[in-house]
Design a protein around this nucleic acid. Structure first.
Lengths: 237, 237
DNA sequence: CCGCAAGTTTGCTGAAGGACAAAGTGGTCG
DNA sequence: CGACCACTTTGTCCTTCAGCAAACTTGCGG
């Protein structure tokens, strides 16, 4: 296996403050791995043997209920750490990670976690910021689920994916990884039928365009109105 | 102000591994404060100046939506740290804390956070376990909200309060702090009307007893059946 | 190039539970 | 001790959305 290029990590928050030599050291202990779409990276309940850093692609983190339903807990985008059970003193993964699109990730054995935390101050800081951000996102979702109607939640979910992974295309902004109606229903606590109806309606209204597994938001502004976002037009009463 | 007694902290997880002298040192920097029921301890969005440790009583951590509705994010019981924005690199409180019953808490200025983390290993470990536990609880609530019906969610909420604060009384197990129907609705994403109807029905069935602001669960087992808990009776088909 | 599987669309129906309304019940503070 | 206030109970209506069913589309593998 040839050596990994140092530039892979140079720009990323967890490692942004480090010197060349340190990055080399970290990389030399990393195991890079490619995952095809749909492949599982780790599974809920299994021993947390490694923690991961996503370099390219998108990861879905999923929980399965006792009833067998799936709930999408969050999406990971490039540059983010994931599977960081050790940060929470857990020795087992609390959820399953699946590649939402073809992905490339590095991973390290958990025993290095403590070492990284101690040795590289930026790493600790960034990890806890990540945790804080995630806690905040979860709180937001709880609030949404508790107070908003299905239409608003689905709109918000689309906007979240757009802001996390949106890339400009002719027609508008496209979500950069494959998403099915079912996926969206698993993010919003509804059924794929309802999601399908909503998307159809929005397509008719020119707010989105969608093909089989790809969604382009053509009118983000209108979608924001549909989500609970405070801020009517700009006309005073 | 007279000195605080060292036994206050001796048993508590964040400080369990420390020597006498260290505990003394920590206590000497703490500000103890009593809060009447309903009093606010800190408010969402304000500068996070201090972090807190609850010694006695119960605290409700609440978020307010743009629509003005309240969502109860979690309850804190004695021995737990709260308002630990610094752990997440936040400089502002992400939610409001209110005393659910008369409470006593210690607090320290945030600048001591880093010091405690570095000096007292048990403190760091315990903080991150707390975070992990909280993340897990939030995930559970998201899953519940996304997949379970109102009745199950309310049952689960009662059980959660019971297991967090339940104390034995003649009739069963009582939730140790005042709770209104509205409070329960704010924990479960429903209306106080629906909660009232459910409690009435359960009271009729002999599962709970409730007075104005206090609830006694007389048949926890049956309540567990009502929540989504896997485990029917024990009769095979 | 055909057939199948996975994903999507759409219609219909019914039940859950939110919204509105209004009256009851303690508890507390003057 | 009386009046108000906060909390609760209960009834009725009506919307939203899950559940079921069935046809349709698209992409892929053989």
């Amino acid at each position: 296996m040839s050596k990994l290029d140092e530039s892979l990590l140079t720009g990323l928050p967890p490692f942004s403050l480090l010197e060349r030599g340190q990055i080399r050291e970290i990389l030399d202990q990393a195991l890079p791995k490619r995952y095809d779409e749909g492949l599982e990276i780790f599974r809920e309940g299994h021993d947390a043997e490694r923690f991961h850093l996503l370099l390219d692609g998108y990861i879905r983190v999923v929980k399965t209920t006792e009833g067998g339903e799936q709930i999408i807990a969050l999406h990971i985008s490039p540059g983010q750490l994931f599977g960081i059970a050790p940060a929470l003193n857990r020795d087992t993964y609390p959820a399953t990670a699946v590649a939402a699109s073809e992905s490339l990730a590095l991973s390290w054995p958990v025993r290095l976690w403590g070492e990284f935390m101690a040795k590289y101050p930026g790493f600790a800081t960034e990890s806890y910021s990540t945790l804080g951000r995630r806690l905040g996102e979860m709180q937001t979702r709880i609030t949404e689920l508790a107070t908003q109607a299905v239409e608003q939640r689905v709109a918000a979910a689309l906007l979240r994916m757009v802001s996390q992974s949106g890339r400009k295309v002719d027609a508008g902004i496209e979500i950069a990884f494959p998403v099915t109606r079912r996926n969206i229903s698993e993010m919003t606590g509804t059924t794929l039928h309802t999601v399908s109806r909503l998307l159809s309606a929005w397509e008719k209204d020119g707010i989105v365009q969608s093909t089989r597994k790809h969604i382009v938001v053509t009118d983000p502004h209108r979608l924001m109105m549909l989500s609970g976002a405070q801020g009517e037009g700009h006309a005073p009463p």
